[in-house]
């Protein structure tokens, strides 16, 4: 659930990177942190184990002038991917406005990807949300590695719900597709925000004005 502060003309939105262990969620945030100018980003904070595995979450605030007259602050989180940290994933998902599902495209990770996606659906439903109502993007990560599944197979496996969701090919390690994923999810989240606030999508509003 987004937050609007009319006094400071500020909108806060929460985006969570979700996916199985070692799929590249933290790397996405690290690359975004490197790519963006200082005025667009805050500090990247990682609550990780000694082995650099995410224990609780990574957090990074981003700011943009995305909505006229308001400063839009995006709170970017990752969840710990390891199966045993499910309770932590639920805590981080609370109040989420948009999700990036990061899939590890390597053949031997397919089962973990599906398990993680089902876990996302279940955790959203436990907090009264539905995967069909929360804007999300699927990122097929690690595409620079040799043993990866073809995109159409990944789509068949993970993007097979009634409505096909936007997906992006990426290699977070090299930076490919990372900024595109961020821009896609923020655009979806903003459109959804405006739609839920006004009852119409920005495109419908534009048509109304043109008529």
């Amino acid at each position: 659930m987004s937050f609007i502060n009319y006094a400071t003309r500020e909108i806060q939105l929460k985006i969570v990177y979700y996916g199985c262990g070692l799929c590249g969620k933290t790397t996405n945030l690290q690359v975004i942190h490197e790519m963006l100018a200082d005025e667009s980003k805050g500090k990247l904070t990682s609550l990780a184990t000694n082995q650099d595995r995410t224990l609780f979450f990574d957090f990074m605030p981003l700011v943009a002038e995305a909505i006229k007259g308001f400063s839009t602050k995006f709170q970017m989180y990752t969840v710990p991917g390891q199966v045993m940290y499910n309770l932590t994933r639920r805590l981080v998902l609370k109040g989420v406005d948009g999700v990036v599902f990061t899939a590890d495209s390597q053949w031997d990770k397919m089962e973990e990807n599906v398990e993680s996606f089902n876990n996302l659906i279940e955790n959203l439903s436990l907090q009264g949300d539905s995967i069909d109502k929360v804007p999300y993007v699927i990122q097929y990560n690690k595409m620079d590695l040799p043993s990866v599944a073809p995109v159409n197979y990944l789509e068949f496996l993970l993007n097979n719900r009634g409505v096909r969701h936007p997906s992006i090919i990426a290699s977070a390690k090299t930076g490919e597709g990372v900024l595109e994923t961020l821009n896609l999810v923020t655009r979806l989240v903003l459109n959804n925000f405006i739609k839920t606030q006004t009852g119409r999508s920005p495109a419908e509003k534009k048509n109304l004005v043109l008529m």
Binding site: E65, K68, F70, T72, R187, F193, I194, T198
Partner: peptide, 9 residues
């Protein structure tokens, strides 16, 4: 609420 026109956020 009106979105800014920039293609990318």
């Amino acid at each position: 609420f009106v979105l800014n026109d920039a293609e990318n956020v």
